[in-house]
């Protein structure tokens, strides 16, 4: 897929008290087909950074280049999955939601139905093609959202804590599923999370950010073989290393945080 360059990006919020720097001089590159996780405490601007990459917000300074071209506004080269289940259109079925992007591209109905069904099969929802979102569980809704973001074949997938609102067991299943989907599609993925274990499980590389203002604290490559075993010693070591960068006091060898 395509490489992304994040070049000296600075973000400012206007608050009643004046301008506040949310993210300061953030730079990193993302290789083609790489799975990047951005981890950091709340308030470090990781979600905002994702919104800038998606083109929903303009940066105050700096530039984001996708495949060498500077980002201006949103575009169909990026698919976005949000945390909120409400992102699906409640007036459309799962199929209708997934085929929305194809419809916008002007693809004829028969073909977009075929592609959308294919995408829903990829996230294992082939039985719920005609269900409306409110009849689906939270995990299923997020799977539809992933299928929807993939359906029109963007080269980059941007995910903003997509599983944060799910219960722990569903989240594990979803991580497994996402890893499979990524292996099958080889998209470039930028995934924002505050969950260290999730980052270690999914990412090729983890960008650790710190808050006030948001800066890159560390850039760590995770070289564990896939599929990864969250209970292995190496996995836990990786987690500990990440936690240390996040400023946690790590003792013993407990997993999680």
């Amino acid at each position: 897929m395509v490489p992304i360059a994040i070049d000296n990006v600075t973000l400012e919020y206007d608050t009643p008290a004046g301008k506040v720097t949310g993210v300061k001089d953030v730079s990193f590159d993302i290789g083609a087909s790489e799975f990047i996780c951005i981890v950091g405490p709340s308030g470090c601007g990781k979600s905002t950074l994702l919104n800038v990459i998606a083109g929903f917000l303009p940066p105050a300074a700096g530039e984001i280049r996708i495949d060498g071209k500077a980002v201006k506004g949103h575009g169909m080269d990026r698919g976005v999955v949000f945390q909120d289940f409400a992102q699906l259109f409640p007036w459309r079925t799962a199929l209708g939601n997934v085929s929305f992007g194809l419809e916008m591209k002007g693809i004829p109905k028969a073909e977009r139905d075929k592609i959308a069904r294919e995408q829903l099969r990829l996230v294992k929802l082939e039985k719920f093609v005609d269900s409306f979102p409110h009849h689906l569980s939270g995990g299923m809704q997020q799977r539809v959202a992933i299928a929807r973001a993939l359906a029109y074949n963007p080269s980059v997938l941007l995910m903003d804590e997509p599983f944060a609102a799910l219960d722990a067991m569903t989240r594990d299943d979803m991580q497994l599923l996402l890893a499979d989907v990524w292996r099958a599609t080889r998209k470039t993925v930028i995934y924002v999370t505050h969950n260290v274990a999730e980052a270690v499980y999914l990412a090729d590389r983890v960008i650790v950010m710190s808050a006030h203002p948001g800066t890159v604290q560390a850039d760590i490559r995770i070289d564990l073989p896939r599929p990864r075993d969250p209970l292995s010693l190496e996995f836990v070591d990786c987690q500990k290393q990440l936690m240390r960068h996040l400023g946690h006091k790590v003792s013993g060898n407990g997993a999680g945080h």
Partner: peptide, 26 residues
């Protein structure tokens, strides 16, 4: 919901599609 507008925008909806396919049903 502004999220719908963002999602539709990310999927390439233009003003026209945004109005008829997102704002009106929304």
């Amino acid at each position: 919901n502004p999220l719908w507008l963002r999602a539709a925008g990310a999927m390439g909806a233009d003003e026209n599609a945004l109005f008829w396919k997102v704002i009106i049903p929304g």
